[in-house]
Computed example of a mutant assay.
Amino acid sequence: MLQTLRDKQLFAKFSKCEFWLLRGWIFGTYCFSRRSFLGLAGYYRRFKDVKFEWSKKCQQSFEQLKALPTEVPILVQRKSGKEFVIFSDASLNGLGCVLMQESKVIAYASR
């Protein structure tokens, strides 16, 4: 991916990028993630008169949401000899890339 960006004379600011991270978003472990999640939950709470409580059902739903993007129905195997298309987007807070072949997602990364 980086070589393709370089070939097209597109450059990433490495001080704003993190690659090949092994950890994911675990609720309650990282201060920024916790604040981000609670801020989102607080926003939606405005629309209901229900107190927000993190239950077992919430945790199960959260784990399912984290797992879905990596399961078989979404990602497909690449086909040898076929053309690839890379879509990328960068902002002040992150970088996202999707590798596609024949309009199907092969791999993706975001940070």
Rank of each mutant, 00 (worst) to 15 (best):
G96R: 01
V50D: 06
L65D: 00
Q9W: 01
F27P: 08
R34K: 15
F62I: 11
I86D: 07
V76H: 13
L2Q: 11
L75E: 03
R46A: 04
F62T: 01
F47S: 07
S61R: 03
L75D: 00
L92C: 04
R111P: 05
E83D: 02
Y30L: 15
G96C: 07
K82H: 01
Q59M: 02
L21E: 03
K82A: 10
V72T: 01
S55T: 15
L40I: 11
L68W: 09
V85M: 08
S91N: 13
Q9Y: 00
F52H: 04
K13I: 15
Q3I: 11
V105T: 15
S110N: 14
L22S: 04
T4M: 06
R111W: 02
F32T: 03
Q101H: 01
P73K: 10
R45A: 02
D89Q: 14
F37K: 03
A67D: 10
L40K: 01
I26E: 14
L21V: 04
I86F: 12
D49I: 04
F14T: 13
K56Q: 14
L99M: 12
Q64L: 15
K79W: 04
I106C: 01
M1Y: 08
Q101F: 05
K13W: 11
S61T: 11
E83N: 08
V72S: 11
R6M: 10
P69D: 12
S61K: 04
G96L: 04
R23E: 00
F32P: 02
N93Y: 02
E63A: 06
T70K: 08
R111Q: 00
S15H: 01
E71N: 12
K82Y: 07
T29I: 03
E102V: 14
K82T: 09
Q3E: 12
A12P: 00
